[in-house]
Simulated scan of single mutants.
Amino acid sequence: MSLVYIAGIDIGTTTAIVLIDENGNIVEKISSKNFSEIDIIKYLIEKKHVVLLATDKAKIPDKIKKISARLNIGIYAPSRDIPLDYKEKFYRDSELKNKLNNMHEMDAYIAAKYAYENIKDIIKKASKISKDEDEKTKILRLVFKEKKIDPKTAYEILHKIEEQSEKEIINKNKRGIKIKRNKRRYFDYILNITIKRKDLEEKIENLKKELIEKSKKISEYSEIIKILSKCILDNDFRNIIPKYSFVKQEKTHSERIFLDTLPDSYIYDYKEIYIPENLINNAKSYIKNGKIYIVKKYKDLKTFVKLEEVIELKEDKQDLKENIELLKKKIEEIIRKYRYK
């Protein structure tokens, strides 16, 4: 059974074409200085199962665009020119060098191979639903040409066309004149409807995701409103503390803060600093005065928190005394050494 092909094309003074099959293997290659557009088209028409043209340039050469339009075959172009570091592994491949005649064929092969790596899963999907290589070729040509549809959708479109291929689709325009639509027009009609349907399905999915996200936010804010409402009714805001990031952002001041992020400088201005357990070890060194509290449990209210379980961090006086004594000894030692220099 024959396989479908990807045609890598390198356009230049010498033009090269390399065909690779759906397994990534080289099938055929050709290069010539006198390779006209017509010659390329004739060559590709003879290769019955070419489903995609490939270039290594992000900006598709005009010649390839014209060939694509004449053959009604899609083009794979990278989002940016295929980088040299990707190409070099092929340039160094001695086995590949023996199969290809020149650098033009090498670049054509790389273009085809790069495309293959990005579309091989699509080919596999088409293989599963097509009855033979001819049908697979039609499906893949439609997928790669239109780009917005998948193999399954392409299969459905092609079968609808086949069902209507012997019928004339009659429609009336605004003036009541009967118009006979040929097979091609019907194909375009079905294709446009299918693409619009796909676009609508994508929009619906995106809207669903957006709705879920917004529902979560509404739920979060509802909970915050509930907590704050209770505090207002009870006239009790002792455990409602602003976040440090919020205070800094708003350039305001509070005697108490919840340290939700590590500061970028020392903290002097707060009487009470509440620090979550996971930050306590890193945050202590930034705090120069004020009482420190370890927050074991709290509720996040976006710009504030509600404290639920807190313990005060008390310095061990004995440890502090020992540290002072140790520091004194070090200072005395430094002074002694300095005197005898």
Results as ranks from 00 to 15, higher is better:
96 L>M: 13
93 D>A: 12
147 K>G: 01
109 Y>R: 05
152 K>Q: 15
126 A>V: 08
103 M>D: 14
106 M>W: 08
78 P>R: 06
120 K>G: 02
34 N>I: 02
145 K>D: 02
97 K>R: 14
33 K>N: 15
132 D>K: 07
149 I>A: 09
140 L>E: 08
150 D>V: 14
132 D>Y: 10
45 I>F: 12
93 D>Y: 05
125 K>G: 03
140 L>N: 07
59 K>N: 15
70 R>L: 05
143 V>K: 01
136 K>D: 03
114 Y>H: 14
93 D>H: 07
121 D>E: 15
36 S>E: 12
108 A>D: 00
134 D>M: 12
127 S>H: 09
149 I>T: 10
135 E>C: 10
79 S>N: 14
85 D>A: 06
48 K>C: 00
131 K>H: 12
106 M>N: 01
103 M>R: 09
46 E>S: 11
87 K>L: 14
69 A>Y: 10
33 K>C: 03
104 H>K: 04
50 V>R: 02
100 L>I: 10
95 E>I: 13
129 I>K: 11
33 K>V: 00
74 G>M: 07
66 K>A: 06
35 F>H: 01
81 D>A: 11
107 D>R: 00
65 K>C: 02
116 Y>L: 07
132 D>Q: 11
122 I>K: 13
151 P>F: 11
111 A>P: 04
138 K>A: 05
88 E>S: 14
45 I>G: 01
50 V>Y: 06
129 I>S: 07
124 K>C: 01
86 Y>E: 15
116 Y>T: 00
117 E>Y: 11
90 F>H: 10
95 E>H: 13
87 K>F: 06
84 L>D: 07
61 P>T: 10
130 S>Y: 11
143 V>F: 09
85 D>K: 11
57 K>P: 00
105 E>D: 10
46 E>W: 07
127 S>W: 12
52 L>H: 06
75 I>H: 12
76 Y>S: 04
50 V>M: 02
93 D>R: 03
63 K>R: 15
47 K>F: 02
98 N>L: 15
147 K>M: 03
71 L>P: 03
73 I>C: 03
69 A>Q: 14
36 S>I: 13
